[in-house]
Design a protein around this nucleic acid. Sequence first.
DNA 1: ATATGATATTCGAATAGTCGAATATCCGAA
DNA 2: TTCGGATATTCGACTATTCGAATATCATAT
Lengths: 131, 131
Amino acid sequence: MESPDSHAAAALLKAFSHPTRLAILLELVTGPSCVTDMEDLLPARQANISQHLAVLRHAKLVDYAQVGSLRCYYLCRPNLVEDMLTLVGRNDPVVKRTPAELQSNREALAKALAKRKSPPKKPVRREVSKR
Amino acid sequence: MESPDSHAAAALLKAFSHPTRLAILLELVTGPSCVTDMEDLLPARQANISQHLAVLRHAKLVDYAQVGSLRCYYLCRPNLVEDMLTLVGRNDPVVKRTPAELQSNREALAKALAKRKSPPKKPVRREVSKR
DNA sequence: ATATGATATTCGAATAGTCGAATATCCGAA
DNA sequence: TTCGGATATTCGACTATTCGAATATCATAT
């Protein structure tokens, strides 16, 4: 269906999709931190960390507060970030389906839909879901 | 900290990070579907859809069951995919912190840590969290 | 066997993402 | 003010992703 803002969602996901950026976010879950701190923790150079922070800033995942000459970065959507880190760390079992199963699924679905009277109630309008 | 498998997590996220692939996953949440079905639903050509499906397969997000000459694709980690779609569709408020706030956070944290006796109990070992 | 429909793969061109080096900026101290 | 530390930006090279076109594969019906 190519949801109207699957582009926005994809852009957000892209911001997450780099090992160094994930590591930065992981660090920030612990509490605010400035670039120098991160240099000690990450196998990346200062310039590179700044570049990744810029990406995270554009995605509105982090922001900073200037404290003297330091910039203290923090998560500006901490719940989103924590949930994302939890989600990608999760290890769901991978299911395998047989053609027969798929067929019966489809039939079950068709039957369920047929059962409803004329107007297909609650079309379960799922978009890259808002809530 | 550059968690040992932030690479794996980033790779998984990359598979999600494309508008067309998100649209495909969104479609598959509804039920299994073959390439021809998707062609009708998406603004993309057959070859391209196959290419994206290959990416999703490598990420173990989808698999297919061959039904005659058709390949019925389905989600092989449906919960993961549904949770991800929900998460990226969520619209968390963006918080803004002042230097003062960050400072007090840090102090609060330091105080909390100091309060504990010698061995810093439960270091909240969060990795790109497994569960 | 061959043709046909459904899907995958390969190739090349265009675009986007990544990184280090060099440089710029900005702030507080001397 | 000049300096040094902290951070950002720019640039260029390199690598990766994306897409369409063409082609290959494979299952079924003829």
